[in-house]
Design a protein around this nucleic acid. Structure first.
Lengths: 331, 331
DNA sequence: CTGTTAGCGCATTCAC
DNA sequence: GTGAATGCGCTAACAG
């Protein structure tokens, strides 16, 4: 129970238990190979001394470190924390420690992080990677790698299909009588953005709506707010934004101009990261990020155990969540 | 440039460069001990082969792993992501990898995480730890440890003092002519809540304002919204909420009742977790979580380098951020 | 079942 | 300045 500063090794335990060092090792990793009596004695001695196996030495010897890395573009983007949390909890169930990396939306930084982590993890998860396909493939060749929201053939991936939700969004606007809408786009490198833009285009076309695209460059409140000028000049009566933050900015911009929402203009976000915690509460597309984080982690663990190499593509669909920025409804 | 699956060791590099293994090692860790020519040759060979030092072996040999752990109660709580991000970036500057742990508000889980991490990190950071003082002390005895928002004597700690910002908030309301305000309280067990409540009380008293306390039990959007009934019956003309989420709920509740903000009623939040991403944008108290994360990390790194053991207590004060829920002002 | 031995890849004395 | 040898703590054959 003492807070010994001295470093205990397998050796002291072996001596204390009167067995060989290898037996101590086995008592911890494969007790079934030892007689119950020996196991008991070793564990008892270890407990008494306060011995705990050195993870580093173990890793050097086995090549297994019991760690995984999760890299995201921006921890502060509300889309990711729930995903990270879910991945964490899943990792915990398999006794994995998780390194977290923040690429800051920068491919170079992401590459650097992968390099830093790769030496001490079993596998990695790249969420919304900003890396090129080649770099991703290169890294995947070194270590098991699973992607979230990035569709690279041959690499195990978990995709949140916002297309389904976006299609519902367009249909919703059409039903409300809108004839001309605008999609406020996100980062050009974003897989999700591409997917959403296409979904808006196709659905609108099918339903006979006119659609314009307004770029917001980076997805943020400010970008959304500034995009309002461009949005209004299109003559559209509703907007679907790349994400909720952008949608929020749009709401602010509209309010600046005394344009009533949803009366004069409808707004739909994406990712449902703000909950109903705004006024008016935002109509948006659900995100499934929790499931994605959990699925990615367990998929990685699975790959680690059974070296299966089949092409896995796990898709999560989304749905429209109707709140008050498209239609006034009851509590 | 090849994606060699074969594991390169210091040995292959040594052979390729025509030097001893120790020279290769030195070329990477203490080039100044070698002739520039040798260093160049080694580095060149290493580059050509795509060699990268094995972090694990290095750690086993030196005892230094180049990792730190950061444990928070809840990643999904918007207070933490910016803190985590800042810590990350600071760690990056010192070439540290960071393990992230989510205790899920559970002391047992937190303890377990520390145990899992402690073997492969130089030091730890515990943010808003739910551990008992004893457990914290016990862990601090094993490894350098720094606390965020936890005041344990003798353990290096970074504290965010929300009192200063709250005092400014009250003064701000007084200046605007408010004579009667209400504090919408958070969890009774929260140290921050206590600190904020006291600050409101004292400042109000000093400035001659009347103040009522309205409980919100759990800090949330819904709680804030529901608290509006109680708030309005007090006859106050402004409210300071325990946190931004609660403040948001209050805004929604006021809007439901067609009460104009800030015209008829002023609202101030706390923690500035929503940025300006709401409409009207929320006047709030800054949280300094970014500085806290950064400070904690650099403090830890500092402790790691110079084994100084003096009692460090780093306090960050907060300030009022005036936006549009207390006063209408220009862009 | 259990003890002995040989590395895992690197940093680090100690000689040269 | 550079090379050879030792050990970090543990696991994994290999014997017995």
């Amino acid at each position: 129970m003492r807070g010994q500063k001295e470093k205990l090794t397998i050796k002291q335990v072996a001596e204390a238990a009167g067995v060989a060092r290898s037996s101590v090792s086995r008592a911890f990793t494969r007790p079934e190979m030892l007689s119950p009596e020996t196991v008991r004695r070793v564990l008892h001695a270890a407990e008494k001394l306060g011995y705990v196996p050195n993870q580093t030495a173990r890793a050097l010897s086995t090549g297994r470190h019991g760690n995984v890395a999760l890299i995201v573009p921006d921890i502060a983007n509300p889309f990711f924390p729930p995903l990270i949390r879910a991945a964490q909890m899943e990792a915990d169930r398999s006794d994995f420690c998780v390194f977290l990396g923040n690429s800051d939306e920068d491919p170079k930084q992401e590459d650097k992080l992968v390099g830093r982590f790769v030496g001490q993890v079993e596998g990695l998860i790249l969420a919304s990677s900003r890396l090129s396909d080649e770099r991703i493939r290169a890294h995947a060749a070194q270590r098991p790698l699973v992607l979230i929201n990035r569709d690279v053939e041959g690499i195990p991936r978990v995709l949140i299909d916002s297309g389904s939700g976006v299609r519902e969004a367009v249909a919703h606007l059409a039903e409300l009588g809108h004839q001309h809408i605008v999609y406020v786009a996100g980062p050009v490198t974003s897989w999700s953005n591409k997917q959403r833009r296409l979904a808006v285009r196709k659905s609108a076309e099918r339903l006979g709506l006119k659609v314009d695209i307004v770029p917001a460059i980076v997805p943020s409140y400010d970008a959304g707010r500034e995009a309002v000028t461009a949005i209004m000049t299109t003559g559209a009566t509703a907007a679907i934004a790349f994400d909720d933050l952008t949608a929020q900015g749009i709401l602010a911009g509209l309010a600046d101009r005394k344009i009533n929402v949803p009366g004069q203009f409808g707004v739909i976000g994406c990712d449902d990261v703000l909950g109903a915690a705004t006024y008016p509460s935002l109509t948006t597309v659900s995100n499934r990020s929790v499931e994605a984080g959990k699925a990615a982690l367990s998929l990685l663990v699975e790959l680690l155990q059974s070296q299966s190499a089949r092409d896995i593509r796990y898709v999560l669909d989304t749905h429209l969540v109707v709140r008050n920025t498209t239609i006034v409804h009851k509590e």
